[in-house]
């Protein structure tokens, strides 16, 4: 099983799409840092958890498009032609989709290692700020549900029709920055929510996440997981019919 995972991962990491998109993601992230984050979000410091979370949220649509592009390859015409062969192997369809999701997850992780490293470098260089511990938990809360949601729903749509994945890419852009708890990337939420909070002695609102936001993150996580499961069911049914 590990062999297949490493093979899929190698195919993704060394393919034509990922290296180029990694570079694009890094350039875009630096652009966000140097043009928006540097000004601070909602009157908070550029190195506040609010600004950092908003930065992650702003970079997410492009990262999600990268992930969806990688996953779209599995639902292309060429891939469908070799499905007859892969279906003949003893690996269950669910496990195949699980492996694809994990491989895409590692690619997503690589992108965010670069994106977060850029942010830390930016904070250290420009603001002499090194207290990064506060960023760990928010990073997980923002990134994980978003990835699971898009990977799950993307594969579900891909198993219905390949072009629907491209539609989801457009949606990733369209849903970016809606200023409430349903904001899947969180950019809009982290830009608006601090303005509604009381400020402390240092005039900065303390970093908290509303219960509604956390509940919606769990919902996205659940929807994404359900998407992976349904994609497996649909693919299994198709291969049986074939």
């Amino acid at each position: 099983m590990n062999k297949i995972f490493y093979y899929e991962l190698k195919r993704m990491l060394l393919g034509k799409v990922f290296p180029g998109m990694l570079l694009v993601n890094a350039l875009y992230a630096w652009f966000i840092l140097s043009s928006e984050t540097i000004q601070g979000v909602s009157c908070t410091a550029p190195f506040s958890a609010w600004s950092y979370c908003s930065y992650l949220g702003r970079t997410l649509p492009l990262a999600m498009i990268t992930v969806l592009l990688l996953l779209a390859n599995f639902y292309s015409r060429q891939q469908r032609r070799v499905e007859v062969l892969t279906d003949a192997t003893p690996i269950p369809v669910f496990r195949q989709i699980e492996i694809r999701t994990l491989a895409a997850g590692v690619c997503f992780l690589v992108i965010y290692l670069v994106v977060i490293a850029l942010a830390l470098f930016f904070y250290a260089c420009f603001f002499r700020f090194y207290d990064f511990a506060a960023f760990v938990l928010p990073s997980a809360v923002i990134l994980l549900p978003c990835f699971v949601f898009f990977a799950g729903v993307g594969q579900l749509l891909g198993s219905l029709h390949q072009s629907l994945i491209y539609g989801l890419m457009l949606l990733a852009f369209a849903l970016n920055g809606i200023p409430n708890v349903f904001d899947v990337s969180g950019a809009g939420y982290f830009s608006e929510y601090p303005l509604t909070l009381p400020v402390g002695a240092d005039m900065e609102p303390a970093f908290t996440l509303s219960a509604g936001f956390l509940a919606v993150r769990l919902l996205y996580l659940a929807l994404g997981t359900a998407g992976v499961y349904l994609a497996a069911v649909l693919s299994a049914r198709k291969s049986q019919n074939a």
């Binding site: 000004q39 601070g40 009157c43 410091a45 550029p46 506040s48 603001f127 400020v199 240092d202």
Partner: peptide, 11 residues
């Protein structure tokens, strides 16, 4: 008043 750079002009 709340703007970070107005509170911290040193930045």
């Amino acid at each position: 008043n709340r703007s970070f750079y107005n509170r911290h002009p040193e930045y």
